[in-house]
Amino acid sequence: MTAVIDQVEQFIIEYIEDNTTEDNISVSGSSNFVNEQLLDSFATLSMIMTLESEYAIKLTPMELADEKMRVVHALAEKVASKIAPQ
């Protein structure tokens, strides 16, 4: 499970690094991409859609409303918990 979480976390970090409008930032598992304004609205929405499609999962608005989901590691955990076991 930890390996899956790590892999998802890495995926999210790379997505943020590729899509952030901020210069010279360092993204980690503890980054709060909403509060730190790393992504604009479109990039955030696109990230949610990308995660759903990449991992064949569905994130409900209720789940996303949890403030913890704004932090990279917590979001990765949520996604990993939904991935069907191989």
């Binding site: 955030t44 929405l45 949610i48 608005p61 996303l64 403030e67 704004r70």
Partner: peptide, 10 residues
């Protein structure tokens, strides 16, 4: 846009 609103403006 419900997922976005949930995440940004819960």
């Amino acid at each position: 846009s419900a997922p976005l609103r949930a995440m940004l403006f819960r």
